Computed example of a mutant assay.
Amino acid sequence: MGVEVDVEFCGTCGYFKKFEELAQHIKAKHPDIELNGHEGRRATFEVKVNGTLVHSKLTTLAYPDYDDLSAIIDEVAQGKEPRSCKQQPITSCIIA
């Protein structure tokens, strides 16, 4: 079964570098998937697998966990439905 991953990212916020990092990680483990990235709404880093939203930076304020996203791709390739992705820890916030 083919797997398509689509990432909408905010170019204004500098998230293209995060998309490149994710793409490198995912393509190393899944060279045959279709991976698309495109600039979208402000502050977005939204990841869809076969059309299902599995991660939203707008909701979580974090980036997706790349290893968990890779596991989701494996599951979808085996015929399972996409599930929500774990997130990377948020380390850049400071509360004063």
Rank of each mutant, 00 (worst) to 15 (best):
M1R: 07
M1E: 08
E4M: 11
E4R: 12
V5A: 07
V5M: 08
D6N: 11
D6H: 12
V7M: 04
V7D: 02
V7F: 06
V7K: 02
E8W: 07
F9Q: 01
F9K: 05
G11F: 06
T12S: 14
G14Y: 10
G14S: 10
Y15C: 05
F16C: 02
F16N: 05
F16Q: 08
F16K: 14
K17R: 11
K18G: 00
F19A: 04
F19W: 06
E20S: 14
E21N: 14
L22R: 08
L22H: 03
L22A: 09
Q24P: 00
H25L: 05
H25D: 11
I26D: 07
K27W: 08
A28G: 09
K29Q: 15
K29E: 10
H30C: 08
D32P: 03
I33R: 00
I33V: 14
L35I: 14
G37V: 12
G37C: 13
G37S: 13
G37A: 12
H38R: 15
R41W: 05
R41G: 14
R42V: 11
A43M: 13
F45I: 02
F45H: 03
E46F: 08
V47T: 05
V47Q: 00
K48A: 05
K48H: 12
V49F: 00
V49W: 00
G51E: 10
G51F: 01
L53W: 01
L53N: 08
V54R: 01
H55T: 04
H55Y: 07
K57H: 07
K57S: 06
L58N: 06
T59G: 00
T59C: 00
T59S: 09
T59K: 12
T60H: 06
L61N: 07
L61M: 09
P64H: 11
P64E: 05
P64A: 11
D65E: 13
D65P: 04
D67H: 13
D67G: 12
D68R: 09
D68G: 09
D68F: 13
D68A: 13
L69E: 02
L69Q: 06
L69S: 08
L69W: 04
L69G: 03
S70E: 04
A71H: 14
I72T: 03
D74R: 05
E75V: 01
E75N: 13
A77I: 04
A77P: 04
A77Q: 07
Q78S: 14
Q78R: 15
K80S: 09
K80A: 13
K80Y: 06
E81K: 09
E81I: 07
R83Y: 02
C85R: 02
C85V: 04
C85T: 05
K86D: 13
Q87W: 02
Q87I: 13
P89M: 12
P89N: 08
I90R: 11
S92P: 00
C93E: 12
I94H: 10
I94W: 10
I95G: 08
I95A: 09
I95E: 08
A96N: 12
A96I: 14
A96D: 05
